[in-house]
């Protein structure tokens, strides 16, 4: 297992290197100027060439690209991740401040997706083409089709106008005040969880339908086991492997989706920070956050692969 883990980590390194190079280059070749955010439209248009050159040099953007890249790698190695162009805030502090909220939203949304998606998928597969199955399938298509940020805005507006409620304005951590923290994260987590839950439900249904037709399931049924027991104990464990894979992939989409959903709910997580940084062209913040997302995505994939081995003894032997 350790060898396997080591091998996966080594294989991940070139991918991460690729991500870092792509985001580094893209942020520097895309049109747009960070000085607009720094000086505002009025100030920007009054910048002379020499002012501009000096400020770009102060920001470290005049150096050759390889020098800038190596400086970034050094920042990563020292753990500081560099500083925001504008206010001088450390990116590592930004991540430590906002990361826990986004992580909570991600984990909670996965839990919600399983809580919602698995039972719906099981019911759907147990009685294919029944009324319950049709309702479940329709709902899952609906949640797949609805954009998360739009649903988020609806929830925000509905809770505001019906219950006069708005989630807390400031970051509050789980360990500081669990109730306030829950109010912050529950909205985005539910929206993202429902979207993922729809995928989980559809995947569970199709996998279970396949497994239910297997001989060993028919044998269990022939032995006179209760229908529920057959599904839960015999069919479901074997149907879950692809569902776990999908869940891992969806976790990556949660990272992407959380950017818009955090914005819709006004939750000051990493997604909202990324949006601000993109608008401001705060290159240092953007490149670090994108790389962080890449690291998390790969980490999740490794965890999914490890869980495969844990769930399926055949893979362990291989």
């Amino acid at each position: 297992m350790q060898k396997y883990l080591l091998r996966r980590l080594i294989v991940s390194l070139p991918a991460l290197f690729g991500v870092s190079v792509i985001v580094f280059v893209v942020m520097r070749v895309l049109p747009g100027d960070p000085l607009v955010a720094m000086f505002g439209a009025e100030g920007f248009t009054r910048l002379g060439e020499s002012d501009r050159a000096r400020i770009m040099a102060d920001l470290g953007l005049s150096d050759p690209l390889p020098v800038q890249y190596l400086r970034w790698m050094k920042d990563i190695a020292t753990g500081g991740l560099g500083k925001s162009f504008f206010r001088g805030d450390k990116v590592s502090e930004l991540i430590l401040h906002r990361g826990p909220l986004s992580a909570e939203i991600g984990v909670l949304s996965v839990i919600i997706s399983w809580i919602v998606g698995l039972p719906v998928g099981i019911v759907s597969a147990s009685r294919p083409n029944s009324f319950a199955d049709n309702v479940a399938r329709s709902l899952s298509v609906l949640f797949l089709a609805i954009p998360g940020f739009w649903l988020g805005m609806l929830i925000v507006l509905a809770s505001l106008f019906w219950f006069h409620y708005k989630s807390p304005l400031l970051v509050v951590y789980l360990w500081e005040d669990p109730w306030t923290n829950l109010q912050l994260v529950i909205g985005p987590a539910v929206v993202l969880g429902l979207g993922q839950g729809a995928y989980i439900a559809r995947m569970t249904r199709s996998c279970l339908l396949e497994v239910i037709r297997e001989d060993y399931v028919r044998t269990a049924q022939a032995k006179g086991l209760a229908e529920g027991l057959v599904v839960i104990r015999h069919a479901l464990p074997n149907a879950l492997l692809p569902v776990i894979t999908v869940s891992g992939i969806l976790m990556g989409f949660v990272l992407g989706g959380s950017v818009a959903v955090e914005q819709a709910f006004g939750v000051p997580g990493l997604g909202a920070a990324l949006v601000t940084a993109v608008v401001e062209r705060d290159i240092i913040v953007v490149q670090n956050l994108v790389l962080l997302y890449g690291v998390i995505f790969m980490g999740i994939n490794i965890l999914v692969d490890l869980s495969y081995a844990w769930l399926d003894p055949r893979l362990r032997f291989q």
């Binding site: 895309l30 049109p31 747009g32 100027d33 960070p34 607009v36 955010a37 439209a41 009025e42 920007f44 248009t45 608008v279 401001e280 062209r281």
Partner: peptide
């Protein structure tokens, strides 16, 4: 175009018409 690119484009004269605010 995004605001960060808008002023770059307009200042450089890379447009025929350009809508924004001052």
């Amino acid at each position: 175009v995004q605001i960060s690119a808008f002023f770059e484009e307009t200042q450089a004269g890379n447009f025929d018409l350009s809508i924004g605010a001052v």
